[in-house]
Write a protein that binds this DNA or RNA. Structure first.
Lengths: 141, 141
DNA sequence: TATTGACATGATTTTGAAAACATAAGTAGT
DNA sequence: ACTACTTATGTTTTCAAAATCATGTCAATA
């Protein structure tokens, strides 16, 4: 459904939201270790998010990544589209470029409704949702 | 969402259902040309489906692929799981193996309902649905 | 029974995502 | 200023999916 890069991006962003403390930055090393993902690979992904102002970063000693108040207002959908592109949840499940509601593929309407709802949910879920303490426990990242 | 192999498998199966005439077999060549997919690659995929009795084939002159009455009773989900494996629509969207309804990832319940409904729809849609004449027109395969 | 046309199978190549490597650039503290 | 630490960037390598190549197997028919 999502590329690995995208999965890592989501997990890292949520990790940031959950573990961020006032004025404390989280290094790639810590995040990558905690999520058990390749550090260098995650670094690139975070940089990609950073370039689009979806996460914030500071270089040097005590540097790292954090979420600014604005960053937290972004939605999960923005994270996803930043990495996998804007067509991820929109393009035809059979890979047909001409497919649309006007010229639908045989499966178009089997998926359209659910995929649209997923999009809406992801678009309506802001990152700040995950910084809320008291969330249920999650499996290891 | 689905691998290319899987997309090709679905399209080819539906093509078979739509274009099959009494006692007439369709060759890989014709199918591949019509769907605009690599012929040899499609051949492998059809063989995979054939080995699991999801499509039928006959060798030799006038040979080709066709759907037996039993084949038509199969569901789209069976086609998909034959190619992409049984976990395609079940596994965690973030790729976390431990994720389940008991130990959910942060996005588990955002997707669970819709994915489950997709599964049900696909499982309830038999191939015979597509041999029904009078279906709406489809974009080029 | 030989030929031909089709599917079947194994091995190989290509391609792009995923991962790793190497180095640059910036910042805090000494 | 110098060092250490961390993000940023460009290049290379790895790996699996996608695609191709080469050959085998089977059946219709002349």
């Amino acid at each position: 459904m999502f590329s690995k890069s995208c999965q890592y991006a989501i997990r890292a962003t949520i990790y940031l939201a959950m573990h961020q403390e006032e004025g404390k930055n989280l290094g790639v090393k810590e995040i990558a270790t905690s999520l058990d993902v390749p550090q260098q690979f995650l670094a690139k992904i975070l940089q990609q998010l950073s370039r689009q102002n979806l996460v914030s970063s500071i270089k040097g000693p005590n540097g790292g990544f954090y979420l600014s108040p604005e960053n937290k207002l972004n939605s999960l959908l923005q994270i996803i589209e930043c990495i996998d592109g804007p067509l991820t949840l929109n393009s035809c499940v059979l890979g047909l470029p001409q497919c649309s509601s006007v010229t639908p593929c045989p499966l178009h309407f089997n998926f359209f409704e659910y995929r649209e709802k997923m999009r809406q949910t992801l678009g309506a879920t802001s990152i700040s949702n995950f910084s809320n303490p008291g969330l249920p426990p999650y499996p290891t990242y």
